[in-house]
Amino acid sequence: MMAKDDFDRMPRTELRESNWTPEERAEFIRRRRGRNWLLLAALGVFSMMIYGIAVVKLHEYGQMW
């Protein structure tokens, strides 16, 4: 069974339009959460890389310190 918080976060249309079992619903939430974490991690890594490139380039050209 999913937690109440999970239930509250789900779009209402999905709940109305589907006849999912509790297990399916829990699985749907688990997958969506997993995708969101993956996307967050990807954006985080990308941001860190851009930051790293900026620091190294600025350092190389002597404009940071």
């Binding site: 997958r31 995708r35 974490w37």
Partner: peptide, 18 residues
């Protein structure tokens, strides 16, 4: 795990990596 459920549940994060 992903194949146990029907496609309308969406992809597992591992699918995007695969």
């Amino acid at each position: 795990q992903a194949t146990t459920f029907t496609p309308h549940l969406g992809a597992d994060p591992g699918d995007w990596i695969a």
